[in-house]
């Protein structure tokens, strides 16, 4: 997926002179996750802008440049540091279009790698996606496959809206088919990633490979799950999830973030609002346990989602 993201950025920079990237260590260093390796030499420091460690200024200056006609892709080294820029993202980038009655556009992309499971301790391991998705005005997407990552990043850069583009760092290693020719993936459409008839799993990002592995295990026991990848959290497209649920009548929501007030809570609420008559069993949520992520490897893993927890949840709703 790393290569897919890198290709998307490069293609968009070659296509549109107004696209540029900025962030900490994205230039000379090549990006802490190496997504922008080689960009500094290829595009130069005008378009590949190393910034000071100043998240408030990164968020705000990227938004300001976008307002005045550019298409910045601003990278937060990790999404945990985007907390520092929360006001710039939520109160400014996500509000100017509405607050000024459509007179100002803010076509900025904030890229932010995040997620747990890498023994980085409590402050470096957040999956806070839902917080960003809470507010109107900001598109929030988080792809799970290289194909989606490339197509959605290109769409994000071309979008006239501000986009929070969340990359789960574990997924950088994920491999998958990516076409040679140009393609785009819409920013507001979910996608069915596996067909099944017994239980619907609704998930996204790191939840997808976890759910796919669980699905393989379940399949060996004759249980076929259908997997819906949300891809976008704001706006939320539940059309495929509802369609699937009306077929299976049972659902499990899998997300890596904390379950409390999480994405699962929203989806469960919407399913009961829109498909109450189809409900055959309480919907289960599989999410990160409600504790800060610790450093110790096994202890950290015990707090995170994994295929076994998903398998157990699916069996509970059957």
């Amino acid at each position: 997926m790393r290569q897919a993201l890198s290709d998307a950025l490069r293609e968009e920079m070659l296509r549109d002179e107004n696209v540029f990237i900025m962030g900490e260590e994205i230039g000379v260093w090549g990006g802490t996750y190496a997504v922008t390796r080689g960009f500094y030499d290829e595009f130069g420091e005008r378009r590949v802008r190393d910034t000071p460690i100043s998240e408030m200024a990164i968020g705000g200056a990227a938004a300001g440049a976008a307002m005045n006609g550019l298409r910045p892709v601003a990278e937060f080294m990790t999404i945990n540091f985007a907390f520092v820029a929360f006001d710039a993202i939520i109160n400014h980038a996500a509000k100017v279009h509405y607050m000024f009655n459509g007179n100002i556009k803010c076509p900025v992309v904030f890229r932010a790698p995040g997620g747990g499971g890498r023994q980085l301790g409590a402050t470096h391991s957040h999956t806070p996606d839902v917080i960003f998705a809470h507010f109107p005005g900001l598109r929030v997407v988080s792809p799970a496959t290289p194909y989606d990552a490339k197509g959605m990043l290109k769409s994000a850069i071309r979008s006239d809206d501000p986009v929070m583009f969340i990359e789960h760092a574990t997924l950088y290693q994920e491999r998958g088919e990516v076409p040679e020719e140009e393609y785009l993936v819409p920013l507001d459409k979910s996608d069915k990633k596996r067909d099944g008839s017994d239980v619907t799993i609704v998930t996204y990002a790191q939840g997808l490979p976890v759910s796919m592995e669980a699905a393989d295990k379940l399949s060996k026991e004759g249980i076929e799950v259908e997997i819906i990848d949300l891809r976008s959290l704001q706006p939320l497209d539940l059309s495929l999830a509802l369609e699937s649920f009306k077929k299976t009548n049972k659902a499990v929501v899998v997300e890596e973030g904390h379950g409390t007030y999480g994405i699962g809570a929203e989806i469960v609420a919407q399913i009961q609002e829109h498909a109450f008559d189809y409900l055959d069993a309480p919907i289960k949520r599989v999410a990160q346990k409600q504790a800060p992520l610790p450093y110790a490897r096994e202890l950290e893993q015990s707090a995170l989602i994994n295929p076994d927890r998903v398998v157990a949840a699916v069996k509970e709703v059957l």
């Binding site: 968020g59 990227a62 938004a63 400014h92 100002i104």
Partner: peptide, 28 residues
Amino acid sequence: VPRRFWGGYAVVGGHVPLGAGIALAEQY
């Protein structure tokens, strides 16, 4: 906006980096 007035902003300091970004776009 047609008069290049990008607004009043109500979070103290919040518009200061926006000003930097607007300037960056002109320089760019």
